[in-house]
Nucleic acid binder design. Structure first.
Length: 527
RNA sequence: GCGCCCGUAGCUCAGCUGGAUAGAGCGUCGGACUUCGAAUCCGCAGGUCGCAGGUUCGAAUCCUGCCGGGCGCGCCA
């Protein structure tokens, strides 16, 4: 899409690229392309060649106007497409350990994962959303002991909480809850048994809290996959055995190692420790094998960027499992720094200083929080200042876009009040739309389906936020033109023109709604 | 030391996979409300795209080397 109008509505550098490859003059190739250009459906008004070899395409107005009618006819389905064949994709995201409440970093992953899942679905993929619950390992033991200590403290015993345990205030609350259920019953039991009860209680209650936070954040899952289920069925061991037969798992220094160097990793990785316990990598091998066995052709894992060092070994795991490593797409989302009045807020789970997702939701609202998380490329660090977000609430970008939607709803309400019926698609003569602002709006909404496909392919929902901002800006400019020019208003003196404009504006509203919905942000009819 | 990400306007960031004169929001300054919602719009100002080379018709975009910031480099997850 060229910037300057004389370069057409679309432009291609095809001839320049071909010219450099074949060593021919680009201008000659461009002219040749022009002569052989087929346009059976008449989409093109005219085509020009410009030095040094650009081909500029000017779209046929009438054909574009028909597209506007399609927007209204297709409604919520406009912009959705279907792939040639069904592709099953599994999006796994957040997957935070159930050792404490979700913090802002998880919020970013949650917003991104859910929006990406919607986006892929809109592009025609068959999407499943999954949360991997790490309910095994040392951290779970530490969690159980942390709760046990809080519980004993509650009963008046003098026990110290070690530095490396979970010291957050929420553990005290859990201890109280535990006490109200069991009284001092646990104190009399064997420690092993009490710890097991604490572990189970803490992790299930915390996981329940996580589920509720996410639901409130408009994030839902098709499945919660528990790491422990892999062990109950003995599948971790069986997959390790299979890799051992392939020579990809071997013993050294009393431990079992996965030969990830075979696939480009810088060193081999331990899967079974000297003491016989498996590592998380062993679980991940079984888990990803399970994903493949379930028939997913494409696996999307969304990780915090601090886990980037694990990418090579996971790619290696895919190859070891006999899969193409390119079918595993790992999206690394950079850190979020939560600020309060410009001052960084510490976000350590164990130290118990929280910047929870719940806090953020309650302070700035779900719409604003989701939109801010989704505005930037996952590759960029994100500064999220709570105070600033609150102060600027009314200037927040999300309100700008939502306002455009609400404004159109308002226009439609006004039209009805004045006795103007909203036109049916066949009743409107769109050729009456002659303002440059209208042409710009038309071009933008017509380009929306391509945007959805491209954003999905790049796995970059943030492109939608920039599209939305641009569409809203174009609409607001259009609307404001009617401020001083009553004949440029949607509801104008000419009834036929009014019908055409109402239809256009309805198409704009539909596209705003569709894109906002993919992002999981509401499109209010009133604000 | 090695690896990944980032470096674009005063601030926060886009830049559509190498195109034509680098964009937006916020902030500053100046304008537009007798009503289709001013949560908006219009305009001014603001740039050696971190630095230096290279690739070619053409580079913010690709390659190399530096500089600066963030994050990793466990028989933790």
């Amino acid at each position: 899409m060229p910037r300057r109008p004389e370069h057409g509505d679309y432009a291609t550098n095809l001839a320049l690229v071909l010219g450099s490859k074949k060593g021919e003059r680009a201008m000659d190739i461009a002219k040749g392309v022009l002569e052989n250009l087929a346009d059976p459906k008449g989409y093109l008004e005219r085509v020009e060649v410009a030095p040094p070899g650009f081909i500029n395409l000017f779209l046929n107005r009438g054909k574009l106007l028909e597209k506007v009618k399609e927007v209204v006819q297709e409604g919520v389905n406009y912009g959705r497409s279907s792939l040639q064949e069904e592709v099953k994709v599994l999006v796994e995201f957040v997957s935070a350990n159930p050792t404490g409440p979700l913090h802002v970093g998880h919020g970013r992953g949650a917003a991104l994962g859910s929006a990406l899942a919607n986006l892929l679905e809109a592009a025609g993929y068959k999407v499943t959303k999954e949360y991997y619950v790490n309910d095994m390992g040392r951290q779970m033991e530490v969690l159980g002991r942390s709760l046990y200590i809080r519980y004993l403290q509650l009963l008046g015993e003098d026990v110290d909480m070690p530095e490396d345990h979970y010291r957050g205030e929420y553990m005290v609350d859990l201890a109280k809850e535990l006490f109200s259920l069991f009284g001092d019953e646990l104190r009399g039991k064997e420690e092993v048994e009490a710890l097991e009860a604490c572990r189970h209680f803490a992790s299930s209650r915390i996981l329940e809290g996580i589920r509720k936070d996410l639901e409130e954040f408009r994030v839902t899952y098709d499945r919660w996959f528990h790491e422990s289920s892999l062990y109950e069925e003995g599948r971790v061991q069986s997959h390790l055995e299979r890799l051992r037969e392939k020579g990809l798992v071997y013993e050294r220094d009393g431990a079992q190692w996965f030969k990830s160097t075979e696939f480009g990793d810088e060193k081999d990785r331990v899967v079974v420790r000297k003491d016989g316990r498996t590592t998380y990598l062993a679980s991940d091998i079984a888990y990803h094998a399970d994903k493949l066995e379930r028939g997913y052709q494409r696996l999307v894992d969304i990780w915090g960027a601090d886990h980037h060092g694990y990418v090579p070994r996971m790619k290696g795991v895919m190859q070891a499992l006999g899969a193409d490593p390119s079918c595993l797409n790992i999206v690394l989302v950079q850190m979020v720094s939560l600020l309060r009045d410009g001052i960084p807020v510490a976000m350590s789970t164990r130290a118990g200083e929280f910047a929870t997702l719940r806090e953020v939701m309650e302070e700035v609202g779900v719409d604003a929080a989701r939109y801010i998380f989704l505005m930037r490329s996952p590759d960029s660090h994100l500064d999220f200042d709570l105070e600033l977000a609150k102060k600027q609430e009314k200037e927040n970008p999300v309100y700008y876009v939502q306002y455009a939607h609400a404004r159109i709803c308002s226009i439609e309400r006004e039209a009805r009040e004045r006795g103007v019926e909203l036109p049916k698609v066949e009743e409107a003569d769109l050729t009456l739309l002659q303002l440059p602002e209208e042409w710009e709006l038309i071009k933008q909404i017509v380009g929306y389906p391509d945007l959805v496909r491209e954003a999905a392919e790049a796995m970059e929902p943030h492109r939608l936020t920039f599209f939305l901002d641009g569409l809203a800006a174009q609409f607001h400019a259009y609307y404001n033109r009617g401020w001083l020019e009553p004949q440029a208003r949607v509801i104008c003196p000419d009834p036929e023109l009014t019908k055409a404009r109402l239809l256009l504006v309805r198409a704009v509203k539909q596209v705003l709604w569709n894109a906002l919905t993919i992002l999981g942000v509401s499109a209010p009819e009133k604000m």
